[in-house]
Every structure is written in C-alpha cells, then in structure tokens.
C-alpha cells in the first residue's frame, strides 16, 4: 500500500529532468534493478537478438544463402496462406479444437486440484497425485497407440462395451464427428494431472487455520470450497487462462497428425498440421514463419484482450 501511495505522490510532483528521474529510480530501487540484470540480458541475447529472423516471413529464405542474400517476396507467403481454398476450413477446425479444450480440458485440472485438496489422508493424496501426472511423460505416439487399442473397430474393448450397452457399433477413430471428442479426451487424460500441479502449489499457500475457522463458523464443505479454496486459486486460474488464449491457434502437431486418417481429414486438418505439410515437409521456412507470425499476432491480441477483460472484472488480476 505504501508503495502505491508513493507512486501516486511521484506523479503529482512537478516535472523533473530525465537525469533526476533516473537518479531517483536508482536510489530507491537500485537492488531491484540489479536483480533484473541477468534476466534482461537473457532476453536481449537469446530472445531478441535472433528476432531479425522474423523477416524471413517476407523473403524466400534459403538457409545456404542466409537471410540477407535471400530474395524479398513481400507479402506473398501471407497471400498464399489466406487465399488458400482450405484457409477457412483450417481456421474453423483449429478454433473448434481450441474452444473445446478451453471449455473442457482447461477447467479439468482445477476441478481435480480441488478434489485432491479435499482428501484428508496425506499419503493417499500423494499417491493419487503421483499417478495422475504420469501420462504427461508418455509421448503422443504411445497415447495414440493405446487409443487405437481401446477404440479399434476390430475388437477394441470400448467399442465392444458400447455395442453391448447401446447396441450400436461406433468407429470412434474414423467417424469425423468423433474426432474432436477423441482429441479432447486424450488431452484430458494426458494433461489433467500435470495441470493440477500449479493449482496445488497455489493451494499450498492457504493455511489450515482458515479452514478451521470456517468450520467453527459452521461453513459446510461446499461453502468452504467456494469461499476459501476457489479464491485462493482464482489469480492463478485467471493468469493461466490469459496465457492459454495466446495459443488458441496452436493445437499441437503430433497428436492431431497421428489421429488423422483418410476418413476424418475434413475435420482434422488444423494450422499446425497444414504448416507441417506445406512448410516443413516442403522445406519452406519462410512459409512456416509467415503462418507462425500470423498465429503470434492473433495470440498477442487475444492475450491482451483477455487481460483487459480480466482487469475490468477484478482490478488485481491479470498480467501486469
């Protein structure tokens, strides 16, 4: 609070010269600036120095020639991308998968973290935590292999089960309408346990006294979750949501590529697989960079918009 007041006071003072401002900043916060040095250096050297590479989106980049020698093509790669007959379909498919995963796969770890937080036997909690985070370490190749095992039309356990119960035989792996549910389901299985870690860390900050006090006040289980647990992770949830928005156009490559086949391709093609087909297998770094640039610009707009909305709702939340 004091610090905030100080800042306000600064603003009301008469205009100072640049040197005076710098001097004052240094005197007050010099150790903070010292702490910033390694991080800032890192960003300059490893993140910003290579950024000249973005210009290859406007060139026809040939690694052998180098960036300077490669020829300019202006916005050719962008026009080729946007005017591709597949563009709208790709956009639609990508947004569908992102939307579903934000609506379903994103809340799953929050839900699970709350449930874990309610477990009273510490050992059991630890055991469950350790189990559910294992799938994060298995590659998509293995996950897709297991999916085939369970959902194959030729003897998959789940297909047989569904047939026994509902009397219909569904080819989950080939029917286009099942593609998105399968992708989301795999995502939940692989990512939920890992995703709980960050929320459990946030919950570690809640003291048991708070719960005990609530119990004394006669608060039931759900009121305790609502009034103590949820507020404790709200800030983390909001920041995670904002950062996730930056990746709306990135659905990942391996999983979708491995789940695609000739019957479901119409709903399976997304930007990431398309860029792989056209950009990487065709050796065009420029083209993939152009598509990447487009995705990044959309991402940063979405991040800042979400942040703006989050701030409207709660002044203390958000990126800044």
């Amino acid at each position: 609070m004091k610090a905030l007041l100080l800042q306000k006071a600064n603003k009301q003072l008469p205009r100072k010269t640049f040197v005076e401002i710098v001097k004052q900043m240094w005197l007050r916060d010099k150790w903070l600036y010292v702490l910033l040095i390694p991080g800032v250096l890192y960003f300059l050297v490893f993140r910003y120095a290579p950024m000249y590479g973005i210009i290859i989106a406007f060139k026809n980049y040939v690694p052998y020639l180098g960036i300077t020698e490669s020829s300019w093509v202006g916005l050719d790669h962008f026009t080729a991308f946007f005017s591709s007959p597949d563009f709208l379909r790709l956009l639609g498919n990508t947004l569908w998968i992102s939307f579903l995963s934000i609506a379903i796969a994103f809340p799953a770890p929050i839900f699970l973290a709350i449930l874990l937080n309610e477990v009273r036997f510490a050992l059991y909690k630890k055991f469950v935590q350790t189990c559910i985070y294992i799938p994060h370490f298995l590659s998509w190749t293995i996950v897709v292999g297991l999916t085939h095992l369970l959902f194959s039309i030729n003897g998959g356990v789940i297909v047989e089960m569904v047939e026994t119960i509902f009397g219909i035989r569904i080819n989950f792996l080939a029917e286009p309408e099942w593609f998105r549910p399968m992708i989301i389901l795999q995502g939940i299985w692989k990512g939920t346990g890992w995703g709980t870690i960050i929320f459990l860390a946030a919950l570690a900050n809640v003291s048991s006294e708070q719960y005990e006090a609530a119990i004394v006040d006669g608060a039931g289980r759900f009121r305790r979750i609502w009034h103590i647990t949820l507020p404790a992770i709200r800030g983390t949830v909001v920041i995670m949501l904002i950062l996730t928005m930056g990746n709306v156009l990135s659905t990942g490559f391996d999983q979708i590529f491995l789940m695609t086949n000739s019957l479901n391709r119409s709903v399976a093609d997304v930007f990431d697989t398309y860029v792989y087909n056209v950009g990487i297998t065709r050796g065009s770094y420029s083209y993939s960079t152009a598509v990447g640039l487009f995705k990044s610009i959309v991402g940063i707009i979405l991040i800042l918009t979400t942040d703006f909305i989050a701030k409207k709702v709660d002044k203390e939340s958000g990126l800044f």
């Binding site: 800042q7 950024m51 930056g246 990447g292 940063i300």
Partner: peptide, 25 residues
C-alpha cells in the same frame, strides 16, 4: 508495482513469449 519500467519489461516478456526468431537465427 511501484518499479519504474516494470510495464515495459513485462511487455517485452509477453512479446517474447509469442514471437521468436526461429531455429536458425
């Protein structure tokens, strides 16, 4: 929150999160 230049630095970080120079550079 009172640190001067903080917002600028955060913007630089967010920018770097989304934009990168790519593998070869």
């Amino acid at each position: 929150r009172a640190l001067r230049g903080r917002k600028l630095l955060i913007n630089i970080v967010i920018f770097a999160m989304l934009f990168s120079g790519g593998m070869i550079p």
